[in-house]
């Protein structure tokens, strides 16, 4: 059985519709109308033990809402969730014992106390045996380099240090699953890199299943073999990053530098299955679809007609692909891609 199973999950919030203006505000007090927001609208997926998944989606897509239902702090409107065989919202305490959560924009650490006090407390919260706790603390002090600020009040830590503290706090009780809600938000390049290194180690050496939400494509590219894309409360993609390139990133670009010693080429290049999308002197950008032609064929065509000095092939940036998927889905939100 999968570690996490989600089937046709829905979460609908009832939101009051406010009338406009000052008079409207008064009117809203007596004449309140509601409309439903479908934050999560029929999502299904399952996660196996040891997987590392990235969950992408624009702001307000329903990612955080889904994570909150997985941890049991939010009750689904309908659908089924099982985490380690439990329904999280019915067995909140049983489930949260086996999961760790880090919400990137929040902290569970005690603001006014030295970091070590927050970590020590978790030993009692999760009833971690003393020996195991010491082992874990020792391991995370090394992996996350906590020692320089272990005895500093959390309020004095930099965001990167605080995030490391929060990560340790989420992991001291050996959770099977770690949920990370935007773990790299606001971190500098070095801190992001360290965070990713740490997550990889955690997944590989401790077998922790990791589900992270992010807006940073690099998080997904570097960490996650599998990608979920959620938009408008629906799961619009579930698969690997390579597959998404194959499926949505079919437009590639051939960049050629023409040899113009014997006179410049006037007008756009004329080759089958490609169109020139940009020109800058001798440098031309030819867009082609991998469904119509291969790069090798195209290069052969171009070389047969024009003298070339150099050429490169540009893969579509994953960020551009994802943007296109979001844009497409906002037009056809009711339809699953």
């Amino acid at each position: 059985m999968a570690l996490i199973e989600v089937e046709n999950l829905h979460k609908t919030f009832r939101v009051a519709r406010h009338h406009r203006g000052a008079l409207g505000a008064i009117r809203s007090l007596v004449d309140r109308q509601y409309f439903d927001v479908h934050a999560v609208d029929g999502i299904s997926f399952s996660i196996e033990r040891g997987e590392m998944l990235g969950c992408l989606g624009p702001n307000g897509a329903g990612k955080s809402t889904t994570i909150k239902m997985l941890t049991g702090i939010l009750v689904p409107s309908s659908g089924r969730i099982e985490v380690l065989g439990f329904e999280p919202y019915r067995r909140r305490k049983d489930v949260v014992r086996h999961i760790g959560v880090v919400f990137g924009q929040r902290t569970q650490l005690w603001w006014d106390l030295p970091l070590i006090e927050s970590l020590d407390l978790l030993r009692y919260v999760y009833r971690v045996p003393a020996g195991r706790y010491e082992e874990n603390l020792h391991a995370f002090r090394r992996l996350l380099d906590l020692d320089p600020f272990l005895n500093s009040p959390v309020r004095q830590l930099s965001l990167g240090q605080r995030m490391r503290g929060d990560l340790a706090a989420a992991l001291l009780h050996d959770p099977s699953v770690l949920y990370l809600d935007e773990p790299t938000i606001g971190l500098d390049v070095v801190a992001k890199h360290r965070m990713r290194d740490f997550l990889r180690t955690l997944n590989r050496e401790r077998g922790v299943t990791v589900l992270l939400t992010t807006h940073d494509m690099a998080d997904v590219e570097q960490l996650c073999a599998r990608l979920l894309i959620i938009d408008h409360g629906k799961l619009i993609y579930d698969g690997s990053l390579e597959a998404i390139r194959d499926r949505f990133g079919t437009e590639r670009t051939l960049v050629v530098d023409l040899d113009e010693q014997n006179g410049a080429v006037n007008g756009p290049l004329d080759v089958p299955h490609a169109r020139e999308i940009r020109a800058d002197g001798p440098r031309r950008w030819l867009s082609f679809n991998r469904a119509d032609t291969t790069a090798a064929e195209l290069i052969a065509h171009v070389a047969a007609r024009y003298r070339l000095r150099d050429l490169t092939i540009e893969e579509p940036e994953i960020e551009a692909i994802i943007r296109r998927i979001y844009e497409d889905s906002s037009g056809i939100s009711s339809q699953t891609l």
């Binding site: 909150k68 049991g72 702090i73 014992r97 569970q108």
Partner: peptide
């Protein structure tokens, strides 16, 4: 109000 409550609610106590 700030949403930090989610940490307290995701604890087994």
């Amino acid at each position: 109000r700030t949403g930090d409550v989610v940490s307290d609610l995701s604890k087994p106590f």
